[in-house]
Design a protein around this nucleic acid. Structure first.
Lengths: 192, 192
DNA sequence: ACGGAATCGGGTAATTAGGGAG
DNA sequence: TCTGTCCTAATTACCCGATTCC
């Protein structure tokens, strides 16, 4: 069988392409590093593009096992938050989505462990983004920390009802945020 | 029941849809996992719906054979385009992103073969979306068909330079669009 | 209706895959 | 982080006469 013309690969074929053992391919599929689809019998099939994308991914991406995505259109605020998080998690990969498209895109390319989500953005509804994240199996276990300038009871209960882990007002209470985020991350590691 | 959406598949066709070898289809038919009818000569024919229902089994996640993503914030226009495409590709999976977040999200969850991309949207820059698609290995070979109300030389050359396969003006010339899209799809199938 | 190429069915053997612990 | 191993299950290759398609 000529695999050079197929776009959907079996584990063995994918293994050949990446120069690793089939076992490793299986492992990567299990931990979510490699997207896949299944046959009705449960065997995996890999999209050639996903394989190629993994090949061309810098090592940094592969090595980082903890990442945070900031969804925030206020550049100044986002950059400040980035600095804070870099201090808190020196080895984390931190990405910022300044616009809605990047938010949707990075959600899948970064596969973040934590999302810092601004609720009040122009042209982007934080509530529906949260709902989408929490109602999609592939992203449901991402920790969502909402942030809003209008910290009202209504907003908090709405976003928590949508699945967000917690909600912070702006400006941020960094002491409390540090404590909360560390606790949530520990909790997640313990259960997964 | 729409008769144009009914069809009987040969084992080879069913195999292709499920990303499996014809032998496997035969096996499933033998053990009763796949319903089928027989030709006078004893060859099996499968109802497309039976295949699709097997694909959408909860635990299974089979990629659609062919899918199209429409990125367009004008709901009316998008719905009209959807109807046209449904007619053109009766068995394709067609999704619409009315906003930028969905665009980025669906790009990775649907993994479309073709993207119909509006260049002039509020709060969403079609040019940078095209650039992102074409510069990311995982999405680079998606066929991008740009659409714009302002069909200027400048816009066309810009979007084509960013990697779009072609660019159409609005209102759409459906005759030409049909011809072009079919040609691009054929071309892609041949080289992939 | 004829011919040739592609595909199918049946049956079985061989290969590959998934899960999990090491 | 990657890989070899064990067991069971899913998938595929192979052979050949028959059927379909154009």
């Amino acid at each position: 069988m000529d695999i050079s013309k197929k776009s959907l690969l079996t584990p063995a074929e994918a293994a050949k392409l990446l120069h690793v053992a089939p076992t490793t391919i299986r492992h990567w599929a299990q931990i979510g590093r490699l997207p896949f689809i299944s046959t009705p019998g449960g065997h995996r099939r890999f999209d050639r593009n996903d394989i190629l994308s993994l090949m061309s991914t810098p090592k940094i991406n592969v090595k980082n096992d903890f990442s945070i995505l900031i969804i925030e259109d206020d550049k100044e605020f986002a950059d400040m938050l980035t600095q804070f998080l870099e201090n808190l998690f020196p080895y984390a990969k931190i990405k910022i989505a300044y616009n809605p498209f990047d938010a949707g895109d990075l959600l899948h390319t970064v596969k973040p462990d934590v999302v810092m989500l601004d609720l009040m953005m122009v042209g982007m509804d934080g509530f529906s983004i949260c709902h989408r994240i929490k109602s999609t199996p592939a992203t449901a276990n991402i920790i969502v920390i909402a942030m809003t300038g209008a910290l009202t009871d209504d907003n908090v209960s709405r976003i928590v009802a949508l699945g967000a882990e917690t909600c912070f007002g702006k400006p941020l209470n960094f002491t409390l945020l540090e404590k909360t985020i560390k606790q949530l991350v520990e909790q997640k590691k313990a259960t997964s």
